[in-house]
Design a protein around this nucleic acid. Structure first.
Lengths: 214, 214
DNA sequence: GTAAGCTTTTACCAATCGGTCAAATTATCG
DNA sequence: CGATAATTTGACCGATTGGTAAAAGCTTAC
């Protein structure tokens, strides 16, 4: 008899690695569009081009797939904020944070929607991550911003709401892509919209925070 | 034999009015949390405190409930943008638009999440509304903003991305409420967060658009 | 009151859901 | 090669899904 999951903790075959990758890739496709409850194992199995029992050989439950997906994507998702550096200048740090977040919205929209779906539906599976690692990271970076504020490098403002506003404006282009495209219309909805967004947002935050451009 | 839906088009009894209201109210609760696919008729029926067949007597299908809910909520949802007045001053119009949108995020979070869920999942049920009425309204208001820009009343900026950014920042407080609360922590997550947000956003947009406060 | 129509319920349906099982198949290693 | 372990499959399970049929219960207008 096969002992797949016990074996996997010790060493993973090429096949295991390959199939798990395919499953997670397919699951990202499905979960990011329909959310956890709206997605079915059959959908994921079909997207991964394998039978349902075969998929369940690698992941015991639907939740197991979802959890691993979340875990894997979360760290990538926080990277831009991690990179936010107290030593840098407010201008370059905020500019590049906006750019990075917009690039992620452009290049990894599924990851963005995966989280958006999860949070929107009450974050039943990632509450701990939000209250733990995420809060700590934001607290830390908020302190950096507050220091800039006090030093007169940027306008006085609530650092938390500043971070929220950058999150929401940038992720908007991934999460609400359909709406953005619909409103912009065929002509303006090309890839150039990310450049336009970057230009607008950088200007908004530079002037809004009264940061002198160098 | 009963002919409920035909009769309803002619005149609605007190009971019909009452029950349909209860169903839509319950459906808003359920759909706004789980999205269309993630919600079940049973859930809605239970929330509406009636049996499933009884619910299906008033709405033939799950989609019928969802559609009516969307239709009803959409106009309310667009009201703040409708109120955006070309004759007013940029300062008062943008200020009050932000306030109104934040008030809606605070007072009608379910409505916001209903749309967020729908759009996030590809807007399969409201594509027409987005490409039609919504786009037209935004086009119209974008022209107002562009005129202000040209007249030197506000900084030059892309009016579409300005509108997107106001949408995303304000709705963020409804759609990602769990995240906002988690990050702010127990102490700061009270109702005061909406006042803090309003203060931050008004400052950001006034300075970001170089609008002189009067 | 009573008859007509409106509302509600009980019982049910086929399809789909997440997941299991044992057997068949394939890969790996000596 | 042969044996052992890893992988894949088809058949199946009970629960839940969206939805129906028909009869019972209730309102309302005459």
């Amino acid at each position: 008899m096969a002992v797949p999951r016990a074996a996997r903790t010790q060493r993973r075959t090429r096949i295991q690695e390959e199939k798990e990758e395919r499953i997670l890739e397919a699951a990202l496709d499905v979960f990011s569009v329909h959310g956890f409850r709206g997605s079915t194992i059959d959908q994921i199995a079909e997207a991964a081009r394998m039978s349902k029992p075969n998929l369940l050989y690698y992941f015991r439950t639907k939740e197991a797939i979802h959890r691993q997906l979340i875990d894997r994507v979360l760290s990538t998702w926080l990277e831009p904020l991690q990179a936010f550096d107290a030593e840098g200048s407010p201008e370059s740090e905020i500019r590049s944070y906006i750019r990075r977040k917009l690039e992620m919205a452009r290049d990894f929209p599924r990851e963005s929607r995966l989280f958006a779906n999860e949070v929107l539906q009450g974050a039943p599976h990632i509450e701990d991550e939000l209250k733990g690692p995420l809060k700590e990271l934001v607290d830390e970076k908020a302190e950096v911003i507050r220091a800039w504020s006090r030093a007169g490098k940027i306008a006085k403002c609530d650092p938390y709401h500043l971070i929220f506003s950058i999150w929401s404006t940038t992720q908007h282009y991934a999460d609400f892509d359909v709406q953005v495209r619909a409103v912009l219309g065929q002509e303006q909805a090309g890839e150039g919209r990310f450049e336009d967004a970057a230009r607008f947002l950088e200007q908004l935050y530079m002037d809004g925070l009264r940061i002198q451009s160098t």
